[in-house]
């Protein structure tokens, strides 16, 4: 499969990356090159093979329902670029 410019734009928007016109061409070429490499996987017969998401981890461990975290507002906000009223600030979002 090969990516056209429109698709590259669409996935860039999904990933919130801005691709200038001069970066678009080389990026499209690189991505297609990588995809061609990945396309080797089509040689493998995988009809009855179960997909594998993780390794060595049979089941999820559980946590007790106790409040032992939070109440660290200074730590939460310590690295924030913009804070007001103990909240993070972003340009206005219209719903």
């Amino acid at each position: 499969m090969s990516l056209d410019k429109e698709t590259v734009k669409r996935i860039a928007t999904l990933a919130r990356l801005k691709l200038s016109d001069e970066r678009m061409g080389p990026m499209q070429q690189d991505l297609n090159h990588i995809l061609t490499f990945i396309d080797q996987l089509n040689e493998v017969e995988t009809k009855d093979v179960t997909p594998m998401a993780g390794v060595n981890t049979p089941a999820m461990p559980f946590r007790k329902d106790v409040v032992n975290d939070g109440d660290i507002v200074e730590q939460v906000l310590a690295n924030a670029p913009e804070v007001a009223c103990n909240m993070f600030v972003v340009p206005k979002v219209v719903e």
């Binding site: 340009p91 206005k92 719903e95």
Partner: peptide, 13 residues
Amino acid sequence: SIHDQHPQKSYID
């Protein structure tokens, strides 16, 4: 998101 605290900004709690 809190929208009514500032004319151009939203605040996030």
